[in-house]
Computed example of a mutant assay.
Amino acid sequence: MAPHYVSRVTTSIVLLLIASLILTPKSCSSKPISQQTSSDVDLLEFPLNLEYLEAEFFLYGSLGHGLDVVAPKLVEGGPPPIGAKLAKLSASIRDVIYQFGLQEVGHLRAIKSTVKGFPRPLLDLSKSSFAKVMDSAFGRPLVPPFDPYANDINFLLASYVIPYVGLTGYVGANPLLQNATSRKLVAGLLGVESGQDAVIRTLLYERHSSVVKPYGVSVAEFTNHISTLRNKLGKDGLKDEGLMVPIGQGAEGRVLGNILAGDKDSLSYPRTPQEILRIVYGSGNECVPGGFYPDGGNGRIAKSYLKLT
């Protein structure tokens, strides 16, 4: 083979390799947070991403406005949420959701009183954002698109999507915290977050056989689809369960009803920040923002993954 031909072939291969490196996105680190250098500050700041989301969704849903009116200093100049609005709720459900919203204000203040924190990230709480979640959960477009603000059941189903993810994050963070002040704060946050999830699940459980109009699907089936999606996006096995499960998966393997999610010993499942980002981004990848966070989350942990894209 002529030397100049070999040279041309070698050059072509090198150019192809360079093009491949340029066009292929960098892989995202899958190293568990426990193996990274993360301080208590990082682990306490990260949940602010979820607390901002919950505060805005619950306040807007019950009042028609959010933190910019209720507690403007807490947002630190962060952009207002996209598409959040007043929901069409009954008086009793509105009262519960309003209480949740005010509780989230307290959570934000408690975390920011302990660590510096960061401004509110850009949040997408629009109808289309929730519709995409439900479409992904069912593996097909729902017709008409799901509207979380349309009525009690829709709003409760949309609420089912949020607090549980946060509480699993607190369960996962707790054993990694080094000082008593941090553990005390997380224990207090976890107690109320798990309470919110329990109330939402109870309200839905009371309606578990009701059909979600106009989809012809029961409330319980909706929750099962949502939980299956979160397990899929989280990519770390079973950590999410709907309101009805196979009898062997229920408490002590004796019941179909599953008013609270838990493992074989009825203990809450833990999730890492990576798993949470995969879920709330809706991408299944902690390095690829989207879903409720168009620009990704704030704080060192969330931003460290964004830098890998």
Rank of each mutant, 00 (worst) to 15 (best):
G172L: 03
N174K: 13
N174P: 00
P175N: 04
P175S: 02
L176Y: 09
L176P: 05
Q178W: 01
Q178H: 10
Q178A: 08
N179H: 12
A180M: 12
A180T: 13
A180S: 14
T181F: 00
R183L: 08
R183T: 14
K184W: 06
L185F: 01
L185G: 07
L185K: 05
L185M: 06
V186G: 11
V186C: 08
A187R: 14
A187S: 15
A187P: 05
G188C: 06
G188P: 01
G188Y: 01
G188M: 08
G188Q: 05
L189D: 05
L189Q: 07
G191D: 10
V192H: 13
V192C: 09
V192Y: 15
E193T: 02
S194V: 01
G195Q: 00
G195F: 07
Q196F: 10
Q196K: 09
D197V: 09
A198P: 06
I200Q: 03
R201W: 11
T202W: 10
T202H: 08
L203T: 01
L203H: 10
L203M: 13
L204I: 08
L204N: 08
E206T: 13
R207H: 08
R207T: 04
H208K: 15
H208N: 10
H208W: 14
H208F: 15
H208T: 10
H208D: 07
S209G: 04
V211W: 07
V212K: 10
V212W: 07
V212H: 09
P214Q: 12
Y215W: 03
G216T: 02
V217G: 12
S218Y: 04
A220M: 00
A220P: 01
A220I: 01
E221I: 03
F222Y: 10
T223W: 00
N224M: 07
I226F: 02
I226R: 02
I226K: 00
I226L: 12
S227L: 02
S227G: 09
L229I: 05
N231R: 06
N231G: 13
N231P: 00
K232S: 14
K232A: 14
K232Y: 12
K232L: 12
L233A: 03
K235C: 09
K235M: 10
G237I: 08
K239Y: 09
K239N: 07
K239V: 11
K239R: 14
D240R: 14
D240G: 11
E241L: 15
E241R: 14
E241C: 13
L243V: 01
M244T: 12
M244E: 08
V245T: 09
Q249P: 03
A251R: 15
E252P: 00
G253N: 05
G253C: 02
R254I: 07
V255I: 11
V255T: 14
V255F: 13
L256E: 14
N258G: 05
N258F: 05
I259P: 09
I259S: 09
I259Q: 11
L260W: 13
A261P: 10
A261Y: 02
G262F: 03
G262E: 01
D263H: 03
K264G: 04
D265F: 04
D265G: 06
S266T: 07
S266G: 12
Y269W: 10
P270V: 11
P270Q: 08
P270S: 12
R271A: 14
R271L: 14
T272S: 15
T272L: 04
T272W: 07
P273G: 06
P273T: 09
I276W: 00
